[in-house]
Design a protein around this nucleic acid. Structure first.
Length: 426
RNA sequence: GGAGGAAUGGCAGAGUGGUUUAAUGCACCGGUCUUGAAAACCGACGUACCGAGAGGUACCGGGGGUUCGAAUCCCUCUUCCUCCGCCA
């Protein structure tokens, strides 16, 4: 959530940024927010004057009653009673204005960083780091991963349909082992890089989902457990970042680095078509997430560090990838800058997104009330996160790119995790 | 799921209607003393909002109520503890 202070002090930058996102009525929304905040201040000041008066008189009444001057006390009592109506109305008004302001602010997405390119959709994303050299070519008869999955017994979509519905793959045999191995590999690399491992809850409450920005913006994308009013997490970002909700840190605590493996649940409402076959888009998938809480002065250096870390993982897996810097139109609601990692799927002849690394600046920490003791008083921290990594498309790319007549060759780093060097047909 | 108890500052812990601007202790920070440290002593020591400032307001788990006035009384929710039941 954007700060009122930012809207007031940096209106030009905010409007220019929101224009990059194609927010049509940005100027009007910002003006309305400022007007509502003016109204809030005026009302609050008026209310507090009344309260101050009341407190003063109440004290006097106490003194009068104690010293036995009941008549004078009663007179003051009547006076305070007369103020009650005005106070009640004032408090009701303040409540309404605050709620209106809050609702308005919830509608405003984050302001993109200056370096974020303008653009309408994914076609306008900037290729930040192209794949160096020629993309690997596959023979004509190269198979997509959903065919390989059957041949190698990696996962079964039909079994998932029976137990749950479409989009819930069941990993089987060496496929399940591959998934587990990848999770362990990622966690080991992340913890070696200084991230502390957590196993967070997979269900979160409404406050938690709102603090990282999933609510109200993405309500329809999360599974909602209505019986207990909880949400299945769409990413470990939600519980991990919320571990520090309401925290007041010291500047020297930064950076705080967290990692965690969780299944992720996404309704993916409205998705369909040829590009969602196999593991390309599913409702439940495994992901290892990295999160950083940072001092505002160096959060972009840490974003670079995270990008380098994720790139290192893909290098180790031997997967060809490129890095995109998302344009304003493709940027997530809460993000100020996002890099997407895409691996090349040789058999499908297309790029698959496997990681998204973002700096949210103070957008989440404002909702989280995540602060640190700064040089100029308490200030909001910056939050960042990224996938390191999401499994399904990594598995798809590994299967497709490494298929040979002798089986699917596993990258060397995975050998100890799977206890074998290649996957065999079943 | 049932019964009972509890929730106060970083921590411990007083406070059951009005000088509570929350006692006291510990911790932390600054200072005096000391070659240095410890001890002792002195001082400072929460958060948010409004205000140019002086200052004001709110906050004792959350929400609501009673009252001129609520940490304190009432209702409600949440969480934790003890016991019982169930259970991977």
């Amino acid at each position: 959530m954007l700060l009122l202070q930012t809207l007031r002090d940096e209106k030009e930058r905010v409007l220019a940024g929101l224009a990059k996102r194609q927010v049509a009525d940005a100027a009007e929304l910002v003006e309305r927010a400022i007007a509502l905040d003016d109204q809030r201040k005026a009302q609050q000041t008026a209310n507090e004057q009344l309260l101050s008066e009341r407190n003063k008189l109440s004290k006097e009444i106490g003194g009068l009653m104690k010293s036995g001057r009941h008549e004078e006390g009663q007179a003051l009592r009547d006076k305070v009673n007369a103020m009650k109506e005005e106070l009640a109305v004032g408090e009701e008004t303040l409540k309404t204005v605050k709620a209106d302001l809050e609702n308005l602010l919830l509608q405003l997405p984050n302001v993109p960083h200056e370096l974020v390119p303008a653009g309408v959709n994914e076609e306008d994303n900037e290729v930040f780091q192209a794949y160096p050299g020629e993309l690997p070519q596959m023979p004509e008869d190269a198979k997509p991963h959903w065919e390989l999955a059957e041949e190698y017994g990696i996962f079964d979509l039909e079994l998932g349909v029976r137990t749950t519905g479409s989009g819930f793959p069941v990993f089987t045999g060496q496929g399940a082992r591959l998934a587990r191995g990848l999770v362990n590999f990622f966690l080991d690399r992340n913890t070696a890089a200084g991230y502390t491992e957590y196993q967070p809850p997979l269900l979160v409450n409404e406050d938690t989902a709102r603090a990282t920005g999933q609510l109200p913006d993405k309500e329809g994308q999360m599974y909602h457990v209505t019986g207990d009013d909880l949400y299945l997490i769409p990413t470990a970002e939600v519980p991990l970042t919320n571990l520090y909700r309401g925290a007041l840190l010291d500047a020297e605590d930064f950076p705080i680095k967290l990692t965690g493996y969780t299944p992720c649940f996404r309704r993916e409402a409205g998705s369909y078509g040829a590009h969602v076959r196999g593991l390309n888009r599913v409702h439940q998938f495994d992901k290892v997430e990295i999160v950083q809480l940072a001092h505002p002065d160096n959060s972009y250096a840490l974003l670079e560090e995270m990008v380098a870390h994720v790139g290192g993982l893909l290098d180790e897996l031997g997967l060809p990838f490129r890095i995109l810097r998302l344009c304003g139109g493709d940027l997530g609601f809460t993000s100020a800058m996002t890099f997407d990692f895409e691996v090349w799927s040789a058999a499908q002849q297309r790029w698959l997104e496997v990681s998204s690394v973002s700096n949210f600046e103070t957008f989440q920490s404002n909702r989280l009330k995540l602060r640190y003791r700064g040089e100029r008083g308490n200030d909001l921290a910056h939050t960042l996160n990224g996938s390191a990594l999401a499994l399904p498309r990594i598995i798809a790319a590994l299967l497709e790119n490494n298929q040979t007549a002798e089986g699917i060759i596993l990258p060397e780093v995975l050998h100890p995790y799977l206890g074998r060097t290649r996957l065999e047909r079943v």
